[in-house]
């Protein structure tokens, strides 16, 4: 790791000031992605501004079916939140399958979506539940937020403060884990609103990161049943081939995980 300066912010305003004063600063939340990257000398921020101790970023609030998760909520807090579990257990289940216990106690939802790893789990949930990403400056719809591999709509110095969404009527996440990293080789989050609209968001499989699958959404909107998946074509040409799996295999997993998610929802 290269040398860096650590700052602990106690308010959003202070964090923004600290970042403004830094030569090449970076926010750090759980550090579960950023610190290993720095250790490998692939990132060399001059300053780290720690967001975890800012009260406004903490906590999970559920009001009726409307949900607000603070950006600094850890995966463990999300996984074990009784309030959230009562309205949207699928998101709790997703958080409970990220990494290992140590990672879940440190890593945060804000850090995960800001990082937008193409194999991360949360981005699929955000797209499928049509979440709004709240920042210190504005609100961004999930559909506009995840722009490319490790790229988001966040601007220089912008802080995610929370995510908001209305709990869908039915939802489930199915993840086929990469045997090495246990990130998603393919993960599918399905969500069905009360009005019958279905969203199917896929992570781990796309060449450009998380995406929604129109064909599966149409089929499931017409017929909310695992069987509806069988006749949908999943085009492998948009999918990723890497060391671990081919696009053709991932295309198969998209269908299988979708089918199982619908069955589990």
């Amino acid at each position: 790791m290269y040398e860096t300066n650590y700052h602990r912010a106690s308010s959003i305003q202070e964090a923004v000031q600290m970042m403004g004063a830094a030569a090449e600063g970076k926010y750090v939340s759980g550090g579960m992605t950023l610190i290993p990257t720095m250790r490998l000398r692939l990132a060399a921020p001059s300053d780290l501004v720690d967001l975890r101790h800012i009260t406004e970023l903490k906590g999970i609030a559920v009001d009726g079916r409307s949900v607000r998760i603070g950006a600094a909520a850890t995966h463990e807090e999300v996984a074990t939140s009784a309030e959230l579990g009562a309205v949207c257990p699928a998101v709790c289940d997703l958080a409970g399958h990220i990494g290992d216990p140590a990672v879940r106690h440190m890593g945060t939802i804000g850090g995960s979506i800001a990082n937008n790893d193409p194999a991360a789990d949360y981005p699929a949930a955000m797209l499928a539940v049509d979440a709004v990403i709240v920042t210190d400056r504005r609100e961004i719809k999930a559909g506009d937020f995840f722009t490319d591999l490790f790229e988001t709509a966040l601007e220089e110095g912008e802080i995610i403060t929370a995510v908001r969404f209305d709990a869908p009527a039915k939802a489930a996440y199915q993840k086929f884990a990469n045997p090495a990293s246990r990130y998603a080789m393919t993960g599918v989050f399905v969500a069905r609103r009360n009005d019958g609209e279905v969203r199917v968001a896929v992570t781990g499989a796309g060449s450009n990161g998380v995406f929604r699958h129109q064909g599966l959404e149409a089929a499931l909107s017409a017929n909310w049943s695992p069987d509806a998946v069988a006749n949908v074509a999943v085009d492998a040409s948009d999918l990723l081939t890497d060391l671990h799996a081919s696009a053709a295999y991932r295309a198969n997993l998209v269908k299988v995980m979708t089918k199982r998610a619908v069955a589990a929802a």
Partner: peptide
């Protein structure tokens, strides 16, 4: 290609 536990499965 398999130089870390992200890519080498133990």
């Amino acid at each position: 290609l398999t130089a870390s536990y992200l890519d080498y499965a133990m």
